[in-house]
Amino acid sequence: MDSTIVTDQILPATGAGTDSRRTPISREGHFAWLDVRSVEQSLLPAIVQAALHHRIDGILSDKIETFDGLPPTVRRILSVDAPLAEDFPYDGVDLVVVADRADALSPNIGHTPDRGVHVVVSDAPTLQLACEVVREVPWTLLTFTDPTKIPLEIVIAAAENSGGRTVTTVTDVEDAEIVKLVLEHGSDGLLLAPRSADDVVRIARIVDHQIESMELSELVVTKVEHIGMGDRACIDTCSLLEKDEGCLIGSFSTGMFLSCSETHPLPYMPTRPFRWNAGAVHSYVLAPDNRTRYVSELQAGQPILAVRSDGSVREVRIGRVKIEKRPLISITAVAPNGKNVNVIAQDDWHVRLLGPGGSVNNVTELEPGDKLLGYVPTEARHVGLPITEFCDER
């Protein structure tokens, strides 16, 4: 397909899909559907059980008997190629997906459940159709025949503020990771034909609601020491960071400091708005899924959490980690729960930690009594994962 399609030739006309009877649907969060039409009968029970256990949003089938016994916690989606019939037994179905746009829009089909349209996008006319349908119906199932994600970007843009939801067919779990992030918020839903129950687990993790905020605590500095040479790491990310955006890093898993990004002016060098001059190589850094990693183990492409001074959180990817020998400074503070926490950073004025309200604190100017921001989890850690056990870190 020609990827040079001009966007303004594709978007639907003003006013399409503005039926006042429709209530706009919240676009928060992603969800997954499983397409079980091609699943071997012997594998189907395990896949359905995995879907229920991992709270998959919906199961799509072309056989209504597939939904027998399913609890109301999973959406039952029937794929229908033929025209809808008024006497069809839709009682066990939550959503009917049709191939014909007219079927979805017809008011004369009787008491069918919610309707959606499946659009296969393979060229400019079918892309135009998708952009129109997504503003007319509550659900649009999209299948793209070409590997480029540009058509999906255009459909997502057309769906903005329409109240409709997009569900995009993905080829595998890796493709799902990409589709989820197209135009930042991605397709609302992902449709995967699983090959095993493991695929169900993996797609569930991809759409699982990610932490959006966390509670930060005030740490009161008690001791600052210059401790000599050691290996410290800079974490360069693939994102531009905000002035009050840091990574959480520390010597102990029971308390981490909010490291300041290099977004603030320096007298002898340009800013590096993608970087944290993070800390010594032994340090823990907080990553997604509430796990810690050693700074020395971080590699290009891995995810890490970026945290702002108000506690808002996002996931960013590591572009590179630079480990170099530098003088080090040790900063010890006390947390609200009375525990001592520590971070070891490069001993230089340009290295900074964030404090309450996003205040910027140069590490070489810190004194006992100064307040910094940090995170104080309640669990100890084993191989980076939270665990309830006795652990004394000093």
Rank of each mutant, 00 (worst) to 15 (best):
A50P: 11
H53R: 13
L70W: 05
A51Q: 07
I56Q: 10
L60E: 02
P71V: 11
H53N: 14
L52I: 13
P72I: 12
I59R: 07
I64G: 00
H54L: 12
I77M: 08
A50W: 12
A50C: 09
Y90S: 11
I59N: 04
I59Q: 04
D62S: 10
G69F: 07
E65V: 00
D57G: 04
D57K: 13
R55E: 12
I59W: 06
Q49W: 08
F88D: 14
V80G: 06
R76H: 11
V74H: 08
H54W: 08
P72R: 12
H54Q: 07
D68C: 00
F67K: 02
D68E: 04
V80F: 01
I56K: 06
S61I: 00
L60N: 01
D81P: 12
D57I: 06
S79T: 09
P72E: 14
K63P: 01
A50T: 13
Y90A: 11
I64M: 00
L70P: 02
Y90Q: 06
L70Y: 07
K63R: 09
D62I: 00
D81Y: 05
A82C: 12
G58D: 07
T73C: 13
Y90T: 06
D57T: 05
S79W: 14
P83S: 15
L78K: 01
I56L: 11
Y90C: 06
L52A: 13
A50V: 09
D81I: 03
D62C: 02
I56R: 04
D62G: 05
D62N: 13
L84P: 02
R75H: 10
I56G: 02
H54E: 14
P83R: 14
P89L: 08
I64H: 01
A82P: 10
R75D: 06
A51E: 11
V80H: 02
F67G: 01
A85L: 15
K63S: 05
D57H: 11
I56M: 05
H54R: 05
R75Y: 10
I56S: 04
P83M: 14
F88A: 15
Q49A: 13
F88C: 08
L84V: 14
S61H: 09
F88W: 10
A82W: 13
E86T: 15
A50Q: 14
L60I: 02
I77T: 09
G69L: 02
Q49S: 14
P83H: 14
D87G: 08
P72G: 10
D57P: 01
A82Y: 13
H53K: 14
D57W: 11
I56P: 02
P71M: 11
D62A: 05
A50D: 11
D87I: 09
L84G: 03
R76L: 05
P89E: 07
L70V: 11
G58S: 06
